[in-house]
Design a protein around this nucleic acid. Sequence first.
DNA 1: AGATAAAAGGACTTTTTTATCCTTTATACA
DNA 2: TGTATAAAGGATAAAAAAGTCCTTTTATCT
Lengths: 141, 141
Amino acid sequence: MFSQACKYAIRAVLYLAVHASKGKKLGVKEIAAALDVPKYFLAKILQQLSRNNLISSAKGPSGGFYLSEKNVEASLKDVVECMDGPDVFNACILGLPVCSSENPCPLHIQAFAYREGLHYQLKHQAIGDLAKRIEREEQKI
Amino acid sequence: MFSQACKYAIRAVLYLAVHASKGKKLGVKEIAAALDVPKYFLAKILQQLSRNNLISSAKGPSGGFYLSEKNVEASLKDVVECMDGPDVFNACILGLPVCSSENPCPLHIQAFAYREGLHYQLKHQAIGDLAKRIEREEQKI
DNA sequence: AGATAAAAGGACTTTTTTATCCTTTATACA
DNA sequence: TGTATAAAGGATAAAAAAGTCCTTTTATCT
C-alpha cells in the first residue's frame, strides 16, 4: 500500500505530534532512534516533509523538527500524498489505466469501499487529534 | 498494495478463466498481447503460478496455459499469496513488527477494515465464479 | 568573530523489483 | 524419426526504491 518512505513519514509525523513542539524540537537522531528507523533515510524524508510545509524545522544549535499549529491541522492524507504522490488513493488496484465506477476492473467493487474508507479516515482526521488519541490510548508508534 | 507481478498474475488468471480451457490453451504471447503486459516478465509469472498449481500448462505444439477444473475452484487470495507472500493481508500498514487488535498501531483500526474486507472477498469467491461475472458484465481485464 | 550544532542538499551505493534473453526440455504431428 | 512449437529454467540487464555519506548553509552561544 504505502512505500517504506511513506510509512516512516507517517510514524515520524505522529511521533513529532506527540513528543515535540515549537519549544521542544527533536533532531533526526532522536527520532530515528525512537522509531528504530534508518537515520539518514529518515533525514531525507523529514527534508521532503519540511519542504512541503507538513512539518517545521529549525537549523543550528537547539534546532530540530516539530509541528507548528498549522502543521497539526493537516491530515495524514497530506503526508501520504506528499510521499507517494497524489494517486495513491485513486489508482486501480490492478493497475489498469482506466478503472472507475462506470468502467470498473474486476476487483473495483471489492477494492473501492475499503480504499475509499481508509482515504476518508486519513483525510478527515487532523494530525493533532490523532496524536491526542495516541497519547490517551498509549499506542506505540 | 500488490506488486506489479501480482497484478499481472491476477489479470492473467482471470483472462485464462474467461478465454481459455483445457481444449483451448493460450500461449504467453497471446496473453501478453491481450493484457498489454511485458511478455517475458509474464512468462516468469505464469511459470510460478504453474509450479504452484494455480494454473495448468502444456508444452509443445498446441500447448499453452489454461485453468483446470481444480484451478477454477481456487481463489484470487491464493494467487496473491503465491506472488506476494503469505503476509500481504496481515502485515501492519505502518510496517510495525507487532500490530494487532490487542496492540494496535495508530492506523490499525482505519486499515483493518480495508484490508480484511478485501481479503475476505478475494478468499471467498472462486476464480470461476468471478470469471462468470466478468463475462456477464463484459468487464475489461 | 569563532566554535559548535543541526538541518539542507547533492552525490553515491546497495538492494529489490521489473524486465529481457538464451538454452533446455517436452510434445505433437507429418 | 525429424521438425517445429511452446513452456521451463537459468542468467543477466535495467529501473526503481531504500539507504548512506559528505559538503554546505543557517543559527546559537560564548
